[in-house]
């Protein structure tokens, strides 16, 4: 069972929270191509290692916040509020700047 330290309430058990997927996603402009839009809709970081994600303290304060968590170990490396810059971790930098390839087959 995950336990997360809500930045507003402190450490709580996982059932109080809801996972919201990758954080720090920029919503593209309306005019972008279908491919870019599809990428925004469907493609998220999904690597083994650090994931910057957002969680909602649903049965608590009702606030969204960010979590830097290792998807291989479930270790939480950082918890920070929405709008705050994501902390960088030395050995994780490689995995967080993945190549961005287009979705779509020839």
């Amino acid at each position: 069972m995950l336990r997360l330290a809500c930045p507003y309430c402190g450490v709580r058990d996982q059932p109080e929270f809801r996972f919201g997927g990758q954080s720090h996603i920029t919503r593209p402009d309306f005019e972008v191509s279908d491919a870019v839009w599809a990428d925004y809709l469907f493609v998220r970081d999904n690597l083994k290692g650090m994931l910057y994600e957002r969680w909602l303290h649903e049965y608590g304060c009702g606030r969204w916040f960010n979590v830097a968590r290792d998807t291989a170990t479930h270790e939480v490396r950082a918890v920070y509020r929405m709008g705050e810059a994501k902390p960088m971790f030395h050995h994780e930098q490689a995995s967080s700047c993945q190549q961005t390839a287009k979705v779509g087959a020839p």
């Binding site: 997927g21 599809a38 990428d39 469907f42 493609v43 998220r44 999904n46 690597l47 083994k48 998807t71 993945q98 190549q99 961005t100 390839a101 979705v103």
Partner: peptide, 18 residues
């Protein structure tokens, strides 16, 4: 279970959540 990880090595990002 490893599709995204392997695909990344081929320069692909997949619409997958593991």
């Amino acid at each position: 279970g490893h599709s995204s990880v392997l695909a990344q090595r081929a320069g692909l990002r997949l619409p997958i959540t593991t």
